[in-house]
Write a protein that binds this DNA or RNA. Structure first.
Length: 804
RNA sequence: GCGGAUGUGGCGGAAUGGCAGACGCGCCAGACUUAGAAUCUGGUAUCUUCGAUGUGUGGGUUCAAGUCCCGCCAUCCGCACCA
């Protein structure tokens, strides 16, 4: 088959007939299949795109043939740094390169033969989309979920921008590998921590990989403990968070993070120089160095003392950079006897080590029985934690407290290529949100975005200078743009109603299209995109814009296709495999089914080109058997099926059953394997003589239908050759006839002490008792069983084990 | 350092606790052919045969372990002192 022309032919027909368009009339039967949209960085699709979209589309087509009205939209996550960096390097404007890349990618995506409904396309860098990203920002602002604060941030001096913690890799900028330093800036944040608990508990009901749920759970990092107030000798006080209130009598010092506001106040004259030097040292350190486990712990004494609230002991207050201001209260109590870190610190600075829990060698970090702890001595740790906290609470010195590791989402970017933050700063009215009627705040085209440490928009006077929406006085705009994760945190909603000019989406539509039934994308998004999207959905629900609180009911991560050398594909390594030449040679269908057959979808693996030739031959083999079937004259089916026919019918229905299950669970490689078996069975039957033409033809028919989701163009062509006047996707997916799977006889393995001795064929109607009887009567076992046996185990349809 | 995942023929990879290696590649053989290619068919874990050994490694549970439990090794990924 000339796949090139066949593919072009069917793509044209699908387009003309609107085959892939979502029909809202059937929305009650909707099934929303969503692949994570792509970033238009390079112009061409790479193997990863094909691996994500191809099999996912096959799943979507499978669902369609099962009678669902499938919604499979596609779009582009088009804002972001790479386009800006590319522009800085080449002088080509990000908008120009991005739109051009999108055009090329759209064309290539269409050649993939996926059933994307392009009527619902979204492109996040276009004003009709980012208008609503800005709207989202304003809603969160109104709800108190967007706020500004000064915070130490990761600064990449090469990109001249702030990086979120999760974008820093090994102390280097994730994208350009420049060492990251710390810098204070006033930034916009989304208060995702308000939803920490909901985000955590919502995980339970999601059909997501357990591993991903675990990662999100750890990312949210809930820990329950106590917050304890330490008064200082001078009268001020600070709180520490601890999960080990039971060790409170063992506190021999406390530590504040260097950024803690009390540091200045608590530092005495004698220690001022030392402390100041230490603060300078710390600020030079980037966060990664500071958090390195390799580095020895350091700290300085402030000269001040705190009072242990439980026994009035005077304990020194230290400053150390191993305490993070961003977690807990930014202060910890040091219990050297029962914490590894505190032990090391105390040894280094000669601080007392006081045991308060019975047990092994110090530091002893397990739970146990309290000693030297006043009236709490003798209690178990679990009990004491509560009792001590309760006592402190009654004196206003502490309380139970739940802490989360999750931090608020920093959304400001000092970059050009993003959605402008819709905020105006007025000298009289302060921070004023842009009125919704004034959206979008257009991103100007003529901007100098050469990095110089400032937001590019700051240098664009026409953009910056505006009037206050309230008092009409001259005012300035916010020069920062939004993190692209904001754009991608709600795109699945916009797909449902992408042309809406009055709202981001119609509530009714969103509630009907969503939630997404199957979301497919890389595991690298486990903690960022997937968490942000869940947060936005929950926030929008609470504001009444939608009725559901989870965006993605079921999630699948595809694996990664590595280079032939087993390493991640990268230009620098020179192991990038381009799909283009394969598609040119074998066609999109062969390439798609090869990707499905050659790898375990969830695992991925190194690229291996040997298999693709084989799969192309397999398709030719299917074509030949299909042509044979078409050439046979119709004759009525046999009334009484012969053994060979029963066998063929068995394989046919077994294939249907297995492939259906495999498709459902994204086990595409085994689905293809089962289809190959069916083809083998058809050839065998043909080779021995087609006695039942109708059965043969029906089986070939099922073969074509089973292949349709995997190789859409190819199956359409075979379907047409078989005389059908309509699209193969208008037929329903084959349904297994369970009766055909009931065999008259079945072969069991017979074991003695787990060693296979022989095989036994029994009628399927035999019950276990009957099977036992027959096995024990086997002449070949007579000698072995002459001394009797202990027990006999019958596993229906599998084996019999006799234990001697 | 902590956490997670993975480890099966020459290769890609299959196996609800129940006959390990489905399916495919490769290889070998046969048929067809003057010949080759293509195609179709059969074979293909290892060991010296009988029957023994085999899923990184050492234990354990079980009538039965690739699968479950405990330890170790290797590789990959995630997170970075989380109080």
């Amino acid at each position: 088959m000339d796949m090139k022309s066949v593919e072009a032919k069917w793509q044209k027909r699908w387009l003309e007939s609107g085959e892939n368009e979502f029909n809202e009339k059937n929305i009650d039967k909707k099934y929303y299949v969503l692949e994570m949209f792509s970033y238009p960085s390079g112009a061409k699709l790479h193997v990863g795109h094909w691996y994500n979209f191809g099999p996912s589309d096959s799943f979507a087509r499978f669902k369609k043939m099962q009678g669902y009205e499938v919604f499979e939209p596609m779009g582009f996550d088009a804002f972001g740094l790479p386009a800006e960096n590319y522009a800085i390097k080449t002088g080509i404007h990000p908008q120009d390169s991005t739109l051009k890349n999108i055009e090329t990618m759209e064309m290539q995506l269409k050649k993939m033969g996926a059933m994307f409904d392009w009527n619902h396309e979204v492109v996040t860098c276009l004003p009709d989309y980012y208008k609503w990203t800005q709207w989202l920002f304003l809603q969160l602002y109104k709800k108190g979920l967007a706020y500004r604060k000064e915070a130490p941030v990761n600064w990449c001096s090469s990109c001249n921008t702030v990086l979120a913690n999760e974008q820093v890799q090994d102390g280097l900028c994730e994208r350009c590998s420049t060492p990251v330093v710390r810098k204070n800036l006033t930034q916009w944040f989304f208060k995702i921590t308000d939803y920490a608990e909901e985000l955590l508990f919502g995980l339970d009901k999601l059909d997501w990989p357990e591993k991903t749920k675990l990662m999100q759970k750890n990312w949210i990092g809930k820990s329950t403990g106590s917050e304890i107030v330490f008064k200082t000798e001078k009268g001020s006080s600070f709180k520490v968070f601890t999960t080990r209130a039971d060790t409170l009598f063992g506190v021999s010092y406390t530590v504040l993070a260097p950024e803690h506001p009390l540091v200045k106040k608590l530092t005495t004259k004698e220690h001022k120089k030392e402390v100041e030097d230490y603060l300078v040292e710390t600020s030079k350190c980037n966060e990664i160095d500071r958090l390195s486990t390799q580095r020895e712990k350091t700290g300085v004494f402030t000269g001040s003392y705190a009072i242990n609230p439980v026994n009035g002991e005077k304990i020194p207050i230290w400053i150390a950079d191993y305490v993070l201001f961003s977690y807990g209260t930014g202060a910890v109590m040091g219990v050297p006897a029962h914490d590894d870190r505190d032990f090391a610190f105390a040894k280094k600075y000669n601080l007392p080590v006081k045991r308060v829990i019975e047990g092994g060698e110090l530091p002893f970090t397990e739970y146990g029985t309290l000693v030297d702890s006043g009236k709490f001595s003798g209690m178990k740790s679990e009990e004491a934690k509560k009792a001590i906290t309760q006592e402190l609470q009654s004196e206003g010195k502490g309380s139970l407290k739940t802490n989360y590791r999750l931090r608020d989402w920093l959304v400001s970017r000092q970059r050009y290529w993003g959605a402008p933050i819709p905020i105006i700063y007025c000298p009289h009215c302060g921070t004023v949100p842009v009125p919704e009627s004034d959206l979008p705040v257009q991103l100007p085209y003529d901007v100098d975005f050469t990095p110089d440490g400032k937001s590019p928009l700051l240098k664009h006077e026409k953009f910056m200078n505006t009037v206050c929406p309230i008092c009409k006085a001259p005012a300035k705009r916010e020069p920062d743009t939004l993190d692209t994760f904001v754009c991608s945190s709600w795109y699945y909603l916009r797909y449902a109603d992408n042309k809406n000019k009055n709202a981001p989406f119609d509530k009714d539509k969103a509630d009907k299209y969503l939630p997404v039934d199957k979301y497919i994308g890389g595991a690298e998004h486990a903690c960022m995109h997937l968490l942000y999207a869940r947060f936005v959905t929950k926030a929008l629900k609470d504001m009444g814009y939608i009725d559901f609180d989870e965006p993605f009911l079921s999630l699948v991560h595809q694996g990664t296709i590595l280079g032939p050398d087993g390493f991640k594909m990268s230009k620098s390594r020179g192991n990038v495999v381009s799909p283009d030449e394969y598609i040119e040679k074998y066609g999109a269908d062969a390439f798609r089914i090869y990707l499905m057959f050659g790898f375990s979808y969830i695992e991925g693996g190194p690229w291996n080109e040997k298999g693709i030739e084989a799969i192309a031959k397999f398709l030719e083999r299917v074509e030949r058997i299909s042509d044979i079937a078409n050439s046979l004259k119709n004759t009525p089916s046999q009334k009484q099926k012969g053994e060979r026919e029963k066998q063929l019918d068995f394989v046919r229905n077994n294939t249907i059953k297995c492939v259906t299950n495999d498709m459902e669970s994204f086990s595409f490689n085994t689905a293809v394997a089962r289809i190959m078996e069916l083809v083998n069975a058809l050839y065998k039957y043909y080779g021995e003589g087609v006695d039942d033409v109708a059965l043969f033809k029906d089986t070939v028919r099922d073969l074509v239908l089973l292949l349709a989701p995997l190789t859409p163009h190819f199956a359409e062509e075979l379907n047409e050759r078989a005389g059908s006047g309509k699209s193969v996707f208008r037929y329903s997916y084959p349904i297994c006839n369970e009766k055909a799977l009931v065999l008259d006889e079945i072969e069991l393995a017979v074991q003695i002490n787990n060693r296979i001795k022989c095989k036994l064929v029994v009628p399927t109607s035999c019950d276990n008792k009957e099977i036992e009887k027959r096995v024990l009567a086997l002449p070949q076992l007579k000698e072995e069983l002459k001394d009797g046996y202990k027990k006999i185990i019958v596993i229906p349809k599998r084996l019999v084990n006799i234990v001697k």
